[in-house]
């Protein structure tokens, strides 16, 4: 969500964490993590641990994150608008079983999101009807990068089952709803209509194939 949309310390959290590799830097060019606290005593303890463990950020990378931060609010605004548009589009597609995006009015925690943050962010997940449809979809879409990670200028399509959540046992994963036909989309700075066009071409193509099979 980034502080552009949500400030957990103001809501009572003690520690806020970021993979700054993602939206904060936003350009797929730096790996970084950030921790923020507001209690001075906790801050001193973390400072001492940061020094003694030594897993600190390099200076060039610190600069690179700050360079990315300068455009955070405009990037977030654009990507979020895109995410809203794409989520609404996916919601209407018969081959899409589920769309998970807290900005959708029927999302179970939509009200919580509205109450505590300025927007629903730029990441959404969607589940295709079957693993077979999922496979042809992934093989047909051209625009989003099929890769791990998120929060970049480029839209990134990830496959949680085999990427971010590959380390989780399959039954645990499915129990959490991360099925083999779930995709995660991190919306970038492209014009969202181009992504919708790309997705639509793939889905129409799959639907046609399905139709042909049924007619045979």
């Amino acid at each position: 969500m980034t502080p552009a949309l949500q400030k957990p310390l103001n809501l009572g959290a003690d520690v806020v964490l970021h993979s700054a590799t993602k939206f904060l830097s936003g350009h797929s060019d730096v790996v970084a993590g950030l921790a923020v606290v507001k209690d001075p005593e906790l801050a001193a303890r973390l400072g001492s641990l940061q020094n003694s463990f030594g897993a600190v950020l390099g200076v060039q990378d610190a600069w690179l994150v700050m360079r990315g931060l300068k455009t955070l609010s405009v990037r977030m605004e654009h990507s979020q608008k895109g995410a809203e548009k794409i989520a609404a589009y996916l919601k209407e597609q018969p081959l899409v079983k589920n769309v998970y995006y807290p900005g959708l009015a029927d999302h179970p925690q939509h009200a919580i999101q509205k109450g505590q943050s300025l927007g629903a962010g730029a990441v959404l997940s969607f589940e295709l009807e079957s693993e077979e449809i999922f496979r042809s979809f992934v093989n047909t879409v051209k625009l989003p990068v099929f890769a791990v990670s998120l929060g970049a200028v480029e839209s990134i399509l990830s496959y949680p089952a085999k990427m971010s959540h590959a380390a989780m046992p399959a039954d645990e994963r499915v129990k959490r709803g991360i099925t083999n036909s779930l995709l995660r989309l991190s919306v970038g700075l492209e014009n969202p209509d181009d992504i919708i066009k790309d997705f639509d071409a793939a889905l129409v193509n799959i639907a046609k194939g399905k139709q042909l099979l049924q007619n045979e």
């Binding site: 590799t21 797929s28 060019d29 730096v30 790996v31 496979r135 992934v138 093989n139 990068v145 099929f146 890769a147 791990v148 990670s149 970049a152 990134i156 496959y159 085999k162």
Partner: peptide
């Protein structure tokens, strides 16, 4: 190589 992520040509 600054890239944080690397493109996959397909699943697996």
């Amino acid at each position: 190589y600054f890239s944080t992520a690397f493109r996959h040509e397909g699943i697996g």
